[in-house]
Design a binder for these strands. Structure first.
Lengths: 151, 151
DNA sequence: CGCAATTTAATTGTATGCAATTGATTAGGC
DNA sequence: GCCTAATCAATTGCATACAATTAAATTGCG
């Protein structure tokens, strides 16, 4: 009885992680020309989406939503403040917190950003249904990976 | 007739790219303790996998397989050379190329690396079949995104 | 109340990533 | 064969990421 040859798990082409990793980079490259028009990097765009959804939140909340820590966010937010997209102010209620709020310029950028998702969808050459299904599978995987970290 | 409310494409939770992006980071965190034992970072582990599959390749080939350019690879490979995992030598046939070859230490590391994929599989809490299916969908998406860049 | 433990940002140091440029080498057209 | 164009790695500059530490503020427990 011939057995199927075992697939070498150390081959690059067999690794789910590399598939995720290289797809993330491909997305970054596709986003770049679209975000250049807005003057944003991709992580900055993520911060803007958090703020467009809910304005005036502490750094910690942004970090939890994006899975980033203050070591990444502090300098990133300072650059966004220098670009006059956001304001950083110490909370008066809890002076440990720094609240991030959109400037009028930051709010206005939302309108210019509306075309971005369409551009991405076009480049993906996928149906919305396929993308939604893949997105949900990925989020489930991500949450299982993060859950495994806490053990 | 009530219409289904349009899903806002600017919401973080609706974006396939953020799902990919945050899953990539989750993988990095899961890999970290496993790769620390090998003295590798995740990108360095990717380079090792390329070399374990085919030794003595030019920097360009590694870059094409990993979608990384010399700006990333040159310093990364220098660190790996300092760690005595690889050697960097100018090709005599084409002196523009630098060939990357494993040292005995780099070759030996492959044995220690065999346990890594199992650890990842365990943390993913998924079946191999699910992961393979997701991997193939991601690679197809990645290739379509990269194809869209060339237009 | 008093003080130790916790929380929150900021800081420091190391390692990617990538755009743009440079320098050396090779290939190709005529 | 010559000279321009293309190729390849290295370099420079900027922007993430993250571990580890620090500093300030708050919580909570006795």
């Amino acid at each position: 009885m011939a057995r199927k040859p075992a697939v070498d798990p150390l081959l690059l082409g067999n690794q789910i992680c590399f598939a995720v990793y290289s797809t993330a980079h491909a997305f970054t490259r596709v986003y770049k020309p679209l975000l250049d028009k807005l003057g944003l990097t991709y992580p900055q765009y993520l911060v803007m989406m958090v703020l467009w959804e809910r304005d005036g939140v502490p750094v910690k909340d942004i970090g939890e939503k994006l899975f980033l820590d203050s070591g990444t966010l502090t300098p990133l937010l300072k650059r966004m403040e220098a670009a006059e997209l956001i304001r950083r102010t110490r909370s008066t209620e809890d002076e440990r917190q720094v609240l991030i709020a959109l400037t009028p310029k930051g709010q206005a950028l939302r309108e210019k950003a509306r075309v971005v998702p369409q551009g991405i969808l076009a480049s993906s050459a996928c149906s919305v249904g396929e993308l939604v299904a893949m997105k949900n599978e990925l989020l489930a995987l991500r949450d299982k990976l993060n859950a495994a970290l806490g053990e």
